[in-house]
Every structure is written in structure tokens, then in C-alpha cells.
Design a protein around this nucleic acid. Structure first.
Lengths: 144, 144
DNA sequence: TTTAATTTTGTATTAATTTCAATTTTATTA
DNA sequence: TAATAAAATTGAAATTAATACAAAATTAAA
């Protein structure tokens, strides 16, 4: 994991989002910022248990719940059992490769929600999820 | 429930999708065609248990799984515990009202997947999910 | 320091989905 | 038609992500 944020930076990030910084919150934030792989709660837990041996899974869930309320992360519902979490809250789409399981980002124009049928609807969140086979896995298949 | 399909029509629908028609499959299909509310497996089960008293939930899951394989339904992953199922497999988006819980359809241009970043990716499915407050619930709130 | 508020933990619970062997139904063949 | 094979259905048990919640630990305030 590339370490690109100081503790002060992480604390400020939380404070700016109206979150009191605690060790767990700082570590979860650090993980999310440095591992932009749309991790599950368990991914986060499995990594952080190495850093905080007393960590409980409930704390990870609590932290992610708080982060969602404060707009720090979005949850991704990708037809999997587990939710994934995305620290990138800018408008964008997700590509899930059904072979390797990786989730990639791709740009989407906000124009798509400019349709008559959405007038009068207060939009809080938009998810654009594409399922298929990524370039890498597709090329591997051709070799066989 | 409006009854708009004959058993023969339902059987043909299944056969055209390479599915052997059985009583359960016909009833599940009928329910999906006549109740375009993006029901959950339990919604379907709760209704059909009144028609088929011996019905098991596993059969509903089995049937929906088969329908998905054969392209009869799509599963909707809307950050709820349960999956929902949609008999409308044409390209469109979904609006989930977080107040009343209803899920509405809205049109989306297929242009949104025409981006450079998706070239080389074999697309099998696209989900566009919008979360917020629907017109009806929004107007109710204003009254208060 | 004492008290209050907040955060974290750990266990138990919930509930949707899956697994799978047994049963039932349907189709095939002798 | 009866016997056999194949397919569909059932029901109980297992799985597991997420939640609830009370107790413990930590931090902040008085």
C-alpha cells in the first residue's frame, strides 16, 4: 500500500466532513484512499486487523455507515452478497468483470439523468453498473 | 391482478426462451408479466403460495435463476437485502424512492456506454439505478 | 479527579440465499 | 401399459453478510 497521506491530512479530511477523528476512522479512511479497489467491509477488516489487533468487524461497519451519512463514501450494490465501498464520490460508472471480479471506474455524463421522467424526483444518488468481461480477461480467453 | 395472458401464450413465451413450461414456471412468468413492480422472490412466493399450496421458496429461487440464465428476467441490486426481478429486459433505468420504496422505470439512451473506457469490455448487462424521493412522496412532504 | 459522552467491542440475532438429498412429477422406452 | 430414466420440486439444514445491543473501554468535560 502506497502511503500518500499524513495523519494530519487524514484528520483534516474527516473534520472537513464533520467526523471526529478516531484511530479506527483514520485507518479506515487511509485504507480507502490508498486502495481504490472498491473494497468490501471484510477487505477493510482483514487488512486493518493486522494494524489494530483488537479491531471488531462491527467497528468497520459502524465507521462505513458514518462515512456514508457524511458523504465520505458511497456503497456499491453489484449483485454480490457483500456491499463494496467507494471513496470516489464524483459522478462515475462502474465496470464489474465477471471473470476476474475486479471493478473498474469509467466516466459517465451527468446528462443521463436529464430526462423528463425524472422531473419532480429528488435525486440523492445515481449508480451506473456495467457487468461483463474486461479487456484483460477477454484477451486471455482468445489465447486458449 | 389483471389477467392478460392465456396459458398458451405463457407456454409459448417460455418455449421461445428455451424453457420447458411447468406449472410453477408458467405461474411465475404470469406473475412477473402482470405485476411489473420489480418484485422480490418473496413477493412472488407470497402471492403464488395462494395458488400452489405446496410451493416451496426454493422453487421460486430455482425458477428465477433459470429465467435469468435464459434472459427472461434481470435481477436488480438496489442496496436492499433482497434482490428484485424485472421482466422488462429492454435497456432502461430504475428509480428507487427511499420513502415509499417503489421502483419506477425511466428511459436511458444506450449512448452512455459508448465511451472509450469501455472499448474492449464485453458488456453483458447495464444497470442504471437512481435513488431519491419520488414526485408523489415529495409533494406529500410539502403539505406538512 | 469525577462524571458524562462517545466510541469500540463481542456476542447473539436476523434473514436472504444456497446446498443438497429425498420425493414427486413428467417423459421415454420396452 | 408397465418399467425406467430424466427432470422438477420440495424441505430441511447450512451459509453468511449485516444488524442489534449491552457491556467495556476510551475520550472529553466539569
Amino acid at each position: 500500500m502506497k502511503m500518500t497521506y499524513t495523519i494530519e491530512q487524514l484528520k483534516d479530511y474527516l473534520k472537513r466532513h464533520d467526523i471526529k477523528p478516531s484511530t479506527i476512522r483514520i485507518k479506515v479512511l487511509e485504507y480507502l484512499l490508498n486502495n481504490r479497489i472498491h473494497p468490501t467491509a471484510d477487505d477493510i477488516y482483514q487488512y486493518l486487523i493486522g494494524e489494530i489487533p483488537t479491531l471488531s468487524k462491527t467497528s468497520v461497519y459502524n465507521t462505513l455507515e458514518l462515512f456514508m451519512e457524511k458523504g465520505v463514501v458511497n456503497a456499491l450494490s453489484l449483485k454480490e452478497k457483500e456491499l463494496r465501498y467507494d471513496i470516489n464520490t464524483y459522478f462515475h460508472g462502474h465496470l464489474k468483470c465477471e471473470i476476474c471480479g475486479n471493478v473498474y471506474d469509467f466516466p459517465v455524463s451527468e446528462e443521463i439523468i436529464n430526462v423528463e421522467e425524472l422531473k419532480g424526483f429528488v435525486i440523492r444518488n445515481v449508480d451506473i453498473n456495467v457487468y461483463g468481461i474486461c479487456k484483460k480477461c477477454n484477451e486471455k480467453n482468445k489465447e486458449v
